[in-house]
Design a protein around this nucleic acid. Sequence first.
DNA 1: TATTGTTATACTCTATAACTATA
DNA 2: TATAGTTATAGAGTATAACAATA
Lengths: 151, 151
Amino acid sequence: MVAGEAGETTEGLAFLLARHGAGAQMMLRRALVSSGLTPRHMMTLKHLDTGPVSQQALVDMLEVDPSVLVALLNDLERDELALRRRDPADRRRHIVEITPAGAGVLRRSDEILAEAEGELFTRLSPTEQTLLRDLLNRINVSPDQFTCTED
Amino acid sequence: MVAGEAGETTEGLAFLLARHGAGAQMMLRRALVSSGLTPRHMMTLKHLDTGPVSQQALVDMLEVDPSVLVALLNDLERDELALRRRDPADRRRHIVEITPAGAGVLRRSDEILAEAEGELFTRLSPTEQTLLRDLLNRINVSPDQFTCTED
DNA sequence: TATTGTTATACTCTATAACTATA
DNA sequence: TATAGTTATAGAGTATAACAATA
């Protein structure tokens, strides 16, 4: 940082990561437009694909606000990609499951996404992609993320 | 991709990148709260720090909408971190420059950010951080990003 | 009283278009 | 007519709190 070049400043690594992360998010969003899904809808379907779960469990998996999940599930249910039914054992609970149509959309979206990902990372060899994954998995995403109210 | 484990699905690399990019963005935002800056305010100051420029030039550098830049500069000018003056050569233009106070805030923010970045990447050696930077710089952030209207 | 899910509301960000003043 | 900057407005996304049903 002390030794900077003449006119060009080196962008901080965190800024670079944030910028390209936003780019990846935008890429995902665009790739999924043809499926009528947002990245979050897709992640929801992905979790549902492993079996029925309560909304509470989904909230934990997706790390979203309960009210956000309600909206997501309303969309999926309207399009008949998922459905809610009461848990007979605890009638407060909703058990959410994916429909066959939902599973189909998920599979198609997975293919579309694989192609889009391929384009995004064409300039990285498979080895380098694995390396990138490992490096990303070793950054401290949530060290003091608990102090999130404000300070 | 074909060979997945029993219950765990491997998260797509693009999803991983988007997720950790959002994490980095949140970290930046929190680290800068004490400066009263958002990451974008800081980027603006960083560009201004290399010399006075027109708003049009800033729009290109920051890749934001002109109306967004207006709001950013209003904030910075209210806090006397930057100022606008008319370009005598073309009175439509505003020449924007950083103030001494703005340069001071920028320097302090740079230090704060260096510390926060250090924490974010503690588990990566300097070599690995350079490697991560190189890998990030080689992903295709804007291949068909021009087709952004909708399709 | 606590928990699950829902609704309503407000706040931030962003995108768009209309407007002004200059050229 | 085109350009630089501004303003106003609407839309998406998110966060919060109040609420109904059930435990």
